[in-house]
Design a protein around this nucleic acid. Structure first.
Lengths: 122, 122
DNA sequence: AAAAGGTACTATGCAATGCAAGGTACTATG
DNA sequence: CATAGTACCTTGCATTGCATAGTACCTTTT
């Protein structure tokens, strides 16, 4: 895996988390989300985003409504469903656990020696 | 994607990063790595680790040597190659950028308003 | 009215990784 | 020789992000 591919692989699972978060703040359409992602330096394009939105809609995490645009074609504005909100909360915990796990490994300068308090992992 | 599947997806790309880090500290064999991962609450088993080690070896990031065990079959002890060390360093930057990106999105409470200093993203 | 440009969205096959399950081999012990 | 424990290997599958090609709506220009 070269570095560009590593970045692609690292985005798996995480892109969905980001999208759900962006939508959780209020009604947005695809272009808003792309701007938000670009601002955060997560470079994705429409061809990546739309299939993901479709998957999330089909999974029951999102809903949308068509809104006429003042200029150009109508837009799909997305919101989270109740299921989506619950899932996002759990997703947040998973992200925090993953971060903690990775950071524990990369900052560990000595081999671990305490094995107690082993819990369910990521 | 249910939560368990989300965890699987989130590990894509990141598991390799963790493994490279663990190996970077000194010669280790598979069981050491599994303990380290378990300690950090990243639950993987041999069936996941061995194919990954094979891929990393084939990519030139790792090398190994057989060492007789005091009890039981001989073990493969892994070390990073020079290529692997360079790649790990770049991977670390990628991880930091990804974390910063995700945390920017999940902690943003207002829509972004400053678009300057856009750089290459993850 | 038709053509062109811009914007929004859709569909689909591919690449790659983590996973699960089944397997082989070596060593020590009974 | 058989069994148990340990170490490692193989392979097909599930899933997501990606790239590419495409359709459709609206405004502007010809």
């Amino acid at each position: 895996m070269d570095l560009e591919n590593a970045k692609v692989q690292m985005r798996k699972g995480i892109l969905e988390f980001c999208i759900l978060h962006i939508i959780s703040r209020g009604e947005v359409y695809a272009s808003d989300m792309l701007e938000e992602l670009t601002s955060a330096k997560i470079m994705v394009v429409e061809g990546t985003l739309y299939p993901l939105l479709t998957r999330l809609k089909n999974s029951g995490l999102l809903d949308y409504k068509w809104v006429e645009s003042v200029s150009g074609p109508p837009r799909k504005y997305y919101i989270l469903t109740d299921t989506g909100k619950i899932f996002l909360e759990q997703f947040g915990e998973t992200w925090n656990e993953l971060q903690a796990s990775v950071n524990q490994i990369i900052h560990e300068s000595f081999h671990h020696h305490n094995k107690e308090s082993e819990e369910e992992g990521v």
